[in-house]
């Protein structure tokens, strides 16, 4: 059996009375792409900071690369690449200098920093911006630069806290493509997100977190199989009539969820279900059949929608 690069047992973090992370267990084997999926305030960043050896746990066991972050912070951090939720690039330095200065923190020689900086600018598709000011980069470019910076020490684990939050769809796809490449090269990725499509795209395995607790764990497809049906019918009757309609639809599907703007029917045969709805004499203003996603898993587990 391979030793995990991260293992947490009963990991807990409190701020005064407030419990941000409430006893979570997980392990990440080397080479895996592991995700923490959860809504705002779930405790994702707090967990990342404890794993990243910059925040002391309140209780529980935590080993990163076989070491205890409380006593071996610098050792652990020397092997991590960290992409924080909020960018902290040095906007007074040029793009390339940001990489070099950061590499120096790891004790890497200036010559090697310069060489890696050039390689990483290529990887991040920022060669043309090498001499640009950080402030002149788009949001997506800044994010790519932050990822390049996190790779300057050739980390064993790359930690990404909401890598694509706030980016437009195209910029997100460019970023996913880069992360995919890292995954193919065997880099261990630990990422948090509240986008289910991101989790589905990037994670081999994930935990669903809410209120500092793990609600479920598994690969995206296994979670969907376990907590949802194959297909979902989304019906809209108009916001006043959704609840009434839902009451009449009860029993027609495996499960019925009523949201303010639509009714979700969980079934393995979406088209068949739509026909039965029509036979009942119900006529939704719009209807669509789609595959189940992690969003449905989250809804099932918490009764809430992931993105408010």
């Amino acid at each position: 059996m391979v030793a995990p690069v991260i293992s947490a047992r009963g990991l807990r973090k409190t701020f005064g009375e407030f419990v941000a992370v409430d006893g979570i267990d997980f392990e990440v084997p080397p080479g895996e792409s592991f995700g923490l999926l959860g809504p705002n305030g779930a405790g994702k960043s707090t967990t990342m900071r404890m794993v990243g050896a910059v925040s002391q746990r309140t209780a529980g066991e935590l080993r990163v690369l076989g070491l205890d972050p409380d006593t071996h912070g610098p050792e652990i951090r020397s092997q991590l690449g960290v992409v924080p939720q909020d960018d902290n690039l040095d906007t007074e330095l040029k793009v390339r200098d940001n990489l070099i200065v950061y590499g120096r923190y790891f004790g890497i020689s200036r010559a090697l920093c310069a060489q890696r900086a050039d390689e990483l600018l290529g990887f991040a598709q920022l060669e043309e911006k090498a001499k640009a000011r950080v402030d002149d980069l788009s949001g997506g470019m800044k994010r790519r630069l932050t990822i390049a910076r996190a790779l300057i020490n050739e980390p064993r684990i790359l930690m990404l806290d909401e890598p694509t939050t706030g980016l437009d769809p195209q910029a997100r796809h460019v970023l996913w493509d880069r992360l995919f490449r890292l995954k193919e090269r065997g880099t261990t990725l630990v990422l948090t997100t509240h986008y289910m499509d991101e989790a589905e795209q990037l994670c081999d395995r994930l935990v669903v977190v809410d209120h500092g607790r793990i609600m479920a764990e598994g690969s995206p497809s296994a979670l969907i199989r376990q907590y949802s049906t194959r297909e979902v019918c989304e019906l809209r009757f108009g916001s006043e009539r959704n609840a009434d309609a839902a009451a009449r639809l009860e029993g027609l599907a495996d499960r019925v969820e009523t949201l303010p703007d639509r009714v979700l029917l969980y079934t393995d045969d979406g088209e068949g279900l739509l026909e039965r709805v029509a036979r009942l004499g119900l006529h939704p203003t719009t209807s669509l059949v789609r595959r189940s996603s992690l969003e449905d898993v989250f809804l099932r587990l918490t009764g809430r929608s992931l993105v408010e």
Binding site: V2, A3, P74, E75, R77, Q79
Partner: peptide, 22 residues
Amino acid sequence: PADVREMVAAATAGAVRPRRFG
């Protein structure tokens, strides 16, 4: 186990210079 020892050794080596010259 050997793989843990290897991780620990790499991390220990990686922190030597930053601990001294950070």
